[in-house]
Design a protein around this nucleic acid. Structure first.
Length: 632
RNA sequence: GCCCUCCUAGUUCAACGGAUAGAACAAAAGUUUCCUAAACUUUAGAUACAGGUUCGAUUCCUGUGGUGGGCACCA
């Protein structure tokens, strides 16, 4: 309808305004609930053209449209707003056509370019936590939304399987794991621990011993013992200690941290971890075997978690394969004059003209940095998938700057796809008590949380009843749908860019803007349809009420909501749309009695309306990775 | 110090520069002879502050205050 009106106005702009008008002057919005009309045209933009007041402009355009567009019956002008009334027949036809369309709202599959969506990308030294849940749910959902928009999607993750952090877990396991009577150190098999949990345990173990050792070193320094440490340490320690005098609490703490860092760098543990990393890079067989073994434990653990989350991947990248990539690109950029070399041999790019800084792309010893690797990986992916048009990176907003730089460098290097790369940046998830800090044990473990929400859903379902006739498998499945749906919805309904607060109690809430509220509406409609039986009759001309019309209007917006969510990479748009739809429907449901409606025609209409609400709910929730039960 | 981000009811979130700033939770009051009460209906309550641009500003610009993050030859 908007397209139709727009083109009519543009075609006749000479007659209406005496001049051609720009398409963007024609702005629509939803009509306020308390005034007459279904669609509103904002007439302020035409005031200057027509040299009249907004109301006169509205009347002129309204007169024109009622003549030109049959579906527009009448109109009303309120100030600068032209409110158009669209005929009931138009809405009923809309409903009929969506009812006939099983894939309503979805664009034709694979009709748009291939997009890669990267998400999850964990480190292999610790288990997944709440922050990863937001990342995974977001990435998965955006992938689904892009598919719904007709894109072919490759879901991927890059697994950070190498580096000093992995060596820390490995070292701690070798040093601190107890040995059982069979002479084995702890394994997932002999402890029954999930692999990622076991490895994570030793990462924590490393940190514990590491801190203890650092404290001991500081104690030695405080006693004036610097014998075992390199020259310069004593001076630095004294300098820092003296700088502390007279500082306020916060500044003093900062200096304490620096002293601690100084001491940490002198620990045997860190030295050994670094040695292990060097051995790993040299492919030392023993270190490599340990690395492979422990990473496999982690992958087994992650697989369980991903399955529970309901996410999956089409292609995996491992940092151990990609961490050397990108050097040839640096050389190429160097020869093109995009990068420059400093005296010490390090290679940089100067982005000051773009409002950014100088950025290192290759160390003076010729080794790659994070940026180098990311450049290489991106190019690599476009080689792997020749029809790839762009990459979406689901990564936290602490890396905003990194991705700005990365995309800019790729663009300067002349990769035309650089403009199709997008950083799906999301805010941190806060707990009611504040930031999650692994050191302080305030991290919420992903497995624990998922188990908790499912258990809560089970409790509430048992309390409520309505479960007669369900097998225990069906019941378990239902509780999973409700619990995990609630969790997913809670994390997805907020604008991804925004930092959000996670309240464990609210996440399992079943009222308000939650998945169970939406799932319930769907289940109730299914049971309504089952009771009504099949054979929905054709609807004849009928008078529909305001609420019914509102619902149809809302339903017709679904395709544009999907398009909008794809453009903005925002599942929140889909979530909030669905919630509005359900509220509208519940209101309607409460005000009529569909099954006992004597007018067969009206009954058929209301059933079809309900069926389409259910269809849209199901599709929308699918885009969020949430299952909807047929009964609950 | 420099750069980025965010600040909306008691709380958690909405609002392409558009009409009287919407919801949800919490609070208060109601609705079960009838399709699932995990529902529905009422009531009360907010744009951090100060300027500017505009017919019109929660939205854009400037400044102030606050939040969080980034500024390593770490990843």
């Amino acid at each position: 309808m908007e397209h139709l009106i727009k083109s009519k106005i543009l075609e006749n702009s000479e007659a209406l305004f005496g001049t051609a008008v720009d398409g963007h002057l024609i702005q629509f919005q939803k009509t306020r609930k308390d005034v007459k009309g279904d669609l509103t045209l904002v007439t302020f933009p035409f005031v200057k053209l027509l040299r009249c007041n907004p109301a006169e402009a509205g009347t002129k355009i309204g007169d024109f449209l009622t003549k030109e567009v049959p579906a527009i019956g009448e109109f009303e002008v309120v100030g600068g707003f032209l409110n158009l009334v669209i005929s009931d027949d138009f809405w009923i036809n809309e409903l009929k056509s969506m009812h006939a369309d099983d894939a309503f709202g979805l664009a034709a599959a694979d009709s748009k370019p291939t997009v890669m969506v990267e998400y999850s990308s964990p480190n292999t030294n610790k288990p997944l936590h709440l922050g990863h849940l937001r990342n995974n749910f977001l990435g998965y959902s955006v992938a689904e939304i892009l598919k719904a928009n007709g894109h072919k999607v490759v879901k991927t993750q890059i697994i950070n399987d190498r580096g000093i952090h992995i060596c820390k877990s490995m070292l701690a396991w070798e040093k601190f794991s107890p040995v059982n009577d069979k002479g084995e150190r702890e394994t997932p098999q002999n402890t029954g621990l999930k692999g990622d949990k076991l490895v994570g345990k030793y990462y924590v173990e490393f940190d514990k011993h590491f801190n203890t050792e650092a404290k001991e070193i500081i104690a030695e320094w405080e006693n004036g013992n610097f014998d075992d440490y390199p020259s310069g340490i004593r001076e630095e320690f004294i300098r820092l200690t003296e700088a502390k005098a007279g500082k306020d609490e916060k500044a003093a703490k900062g200096i304490d941290d620096k002293i601690k860092d100084l001491a940490k760098n002198q620990t045997t543990l860190l030295r050994e971890a670094k040695e292990m990393l060097v051995k790993w890079e040299a492919r030392d067989p023993q270190v490599y075997l340990l690395w492979t073994t422990m990473n496999n434990w982690v992958y087994d653990g992650f697989a369980v978690t991903y399955k529970k989350m309901g996410v999956d991947f089409d292609k995996l990248y491992y940092e151990s394969d990609t961490f050397l990539l990108g050097k040839d690109i640096v050389m190429e950029g160097l020869s093109k004059g995009i990068f420059f070399k400093k005296e010490d041999g390090s290679v940089w790019i100067d982005l000051t003209a773009d409002g950014l800084d100088e950025k290192l792309v290759l160390r003076s010893d010729g080794t790659a940095v994070y940026m180098t690797q990311d450049m290489g990986t991106a190019v690599d992916r476009f080689n792997d998938y020749p029809d790839l048009s762009g990459i979406v990176y689901t990564v936290g907003n602490e890396q905003d700057y990194h991705f700005r730089v990365l995309f800019l460098i790729l663009e300067k290097l002349g990769y035309s796809w650089a403009k199709n790369c997008f950083h799906l940046s999301y805010g941190m998830v806060d707990l009611p008590e504040g930031k999650m800090k692994s050191r302080e044990g305030t991290v919420v473990d992903a497995d624990d949380l998922m188990a908790e929400v499912v258990e809560s859903a089970a409790e509430m379902t048992r309390e409520r009843g309505h479960i007669e006739g369900l097998s225990s498998d069906e019941l378990e499945n239902l509780c999973k749908m409700i619990g995990l749906g609630g969790l997913k919805y809670f994390l997805l309904k907020v604008d991804p860019k925004k930092r959000m607060k996670f309240n464990p109690a609210e996440s399992i809430e079943l009222n308000g803007n939650t998945a169970p509220f939406i799932q319930y509406a769907h289940a109730r409609i299914q049971s309504l349809l089952a009771k009504a039986g099949t054979g929905l009759k054709e609807i004849h001309s009928i008078e529909i009420n305001e609420v019914e019309k509102e619902i149809i209007k809302q339903l017709t917006e679904f395709p544009s909501v999907i398009a909008e969510a794809g453009k903005e990479y925002s599942p929140a748009i889909v979530a909030n749309y669905t919630f509005e739809l359900v509220k509208l429907y519940n209101h309607f449901y409460q005000s009529v009695n569909i099954l006992n409606e004597p007018d067969e025609n009206l009954k058929a209409f209301r059933l079809i309306l309900s069926a389409n609400v259910a269809k849209v709910i199901k599709t929308a929730m699918r885009l969020l990775g949430i299952d909807v039960p047929n009964r609950m």
